[in-house]
Nucleic acid binder design. Structure first.
Length: 349
DNA sequence: AACACGGGGTT
DNA sequence: AACCCAGTGTT
């Protein structure tokens, strides 16, 4: 039995019942694939349901405000996925009359659709002969065939893609592709893979050589940068029994593009109350000196994959010049980073 | 070729 | 703390 037949047989007996497995609708498969980029299935499932409910068809997504799309995406991370998702929905509706491209070549032109995603959609929806190479596939192929070329080197990317094409199933591309990924996610896991009950143990080079735990090989380490964020939370208590505050939308490059946050003073190092008293006007203008207090005595350290944000929330009470001022009851409508959402949940406005 | 881009789960 | 997740786009 060939490698691909073993994978396919295993899959047909072990596949999970996932929400997007009951359809070949390119819209739904595309949505699931974008959500699942660098994201675990368990984390993505509730988002998939919410998007399908809010936007049953690609036309619904295309006519939505970006604000609403980002709000639904809040908490998933890599927000360029949401912006590109929205842009591609518009492309499909406006340029292709609402019909998704039916080929790898057509699909890869969509924003946010790269080699992996174009291969996944074209093979799953149309059984096109394209090989998917995601993190699971790198792991399974490197172990079974004993390949120690670094998976994130240029040579590795090329040679694993070539190998993936060579071992593709002859006919059932659709199920084989999902099968090899599922096999990596469930059976041939990163740590403590279940080799003792593996249907592919016979023929697995890494198992034979005792190198399972060393594969796949990955080079380079992400250097983590430290940043110091001082959020200035303005509060103006009005007689109308309403409290005003202010949010701003992040623009330009960097993290959290197009999401909202409180006025931010970023510094090179930790600063204290005296510094805030002097510098708050760089960020936010008050009509008279505000009453300032620190919300969190210890840093809130928000960890991203490549930076740690040492964060202090400063509460500034007093009347301020209200461009973009909003009542606190409206805060929930804005798409915000998890760091800000956690603060809003904890702070007693 | 290297880096930026989130947040959460697992060990 | 380190690694990884159904990767893509930019520099």
């Amino acid at each position: 039995m060939s490698f691909s037949d073993k994978i396919l047989t295993w899959y047909l007996e072990n596949k999970r019942d996932l929400p997007w497995r009951d359809t070949l609708d390119p819209y739904k498969i595309w949505l699931s694939e974008i959500i699942l980029q660098q994201t675990r299935v368990a984390q993505g499932i509730p988002y998939y349901h919410r998007f399908i409910e809010a936007f049953p068809k690609v036309e619904d997504l295309a006519i939505a405000n970006e604000e609403k799309v980002l709000k639904l995406w809040q908490g998933l991370g890599y927000y360029s996925r949401a912006r590109n998702l929205h842009a591609s929905a518009k492309m499909v509706v406006e340029e292709f009359n609402g019909t998704f491209p039916k080929t790898y070549t057509g699909l890869i032109k969509l924003k946010g659709v790269g080699d992996y995603t174009a291969s996944a959609i074209s093979s799953i929806c149309f059984n096109e002969r394209q090989a998917v190479v995601d993190g699971n596939v790198y792991r399974v192929l490197s172990r079974y065939f004993g390949v120690n070329i670094p998976i994130n080197s240029t040579e590795g990317i090329k040679s694993f893609k070539k190998l993936a094409i060579e071992v593709l199933h002859p006919t059932n591309i659709r199920d084989y592709n999902q099968g090899i990924m599922e096999f990596g996610a469930v059976q041939c896991t990163p740590q403590s893979p279940n080799c003792s009950s593996c249907p592919l143990a016979g023929g697995c080079v890494a198992l034979e050589m005792g190198t399972v735990k060393d594969l796949p090989v990955k080079i380079g380490k992400t250097k983590i940068k430290k940043r110091f964020f001082n959020y200035l939370v303005p509060l103006e208590h009005r007689k109308s029994d309403e409290t005003l505050t202010q949010l701003r939308q992040r623009k330009g490059k960097g993290i959290w593009q197009n999401l909202w946050e409180f006025p931010l003073l970023e510094t090179e190092r930790e600063i204290g109350l005296e510094d805030i008293e002097i510098r708050h006007s760089e960020v936010l203008k008050f009509k008279r000196p505000p009453e300032i207090s620190l919300f969190n005595s210890d840093f809130i350290v928000h960890k991203l994959s490549h930076q740690h944000l040492y964060t202090q929330f400063w509460i500034l009470e007093g009347p301020f010049y209200r461009t973009n001022a909003i009542p606190i009851s409206n805060l929930e409508n804005y798409p915000v980073p998890v760091l800000i959402a956690e603060f809003m949940k904890t702070f007693k406005f």
